[in-house]
Amino acid sequence: MKSLRVMSKRRRREMQHKEVLRVCSKLLIPLIMLFALYVQFHGDFGPGGGFQAGVIFASAFILYALIFGVDVGMKVLSPGARRFFLAAGLLLYAGVGIVGMLLGGRYLNYSVLLQDPIAGQHLGILLIELGVGVTVAAAMITIFYVFANQDDSE
């Protein structure tokens, strides 16, 4: 069985010479993240939303890990942080629903969140989309790292 770690070790030596890939990905990664944030917060007005934004955000991490090596990439976000974000997004989503209930509405009714029902809807949708984005990004990064690091024997 070949391991990705072994591959990535060899690949990393090769990568020392692949200036073009490294420079281009360094240029691209911030733009990918910026685009993910745009998709995240512009989802109310155009195509996109938390799900797509989360995937794009995760792809920035995956690109980094592919170019600079998985073990270098794993240092960017610790396992504890990945698990925290994985749960935090879902809890934020579910929590918005519970806050709505405490304020006298039904579960996941955002109109009661603020005085103005439309502003409440805006806030609610912004928060739950953020929850979706955080969980999806954390899930994709987690699954990738688990797959890539599985053969990390000896």
Binding site: D44, F45, G46, P47, I118, Q121, H122, I125, E129
Partner: peptide
């Protein structure tokens, strides 16, 4: 909902 994107208003 005040959302111009109907898809988002339905989904979210």
């Amino acid at each position: 909902t005040g959302m111009p994107n109907v898809v988002t208003s339905i989904l979210a």
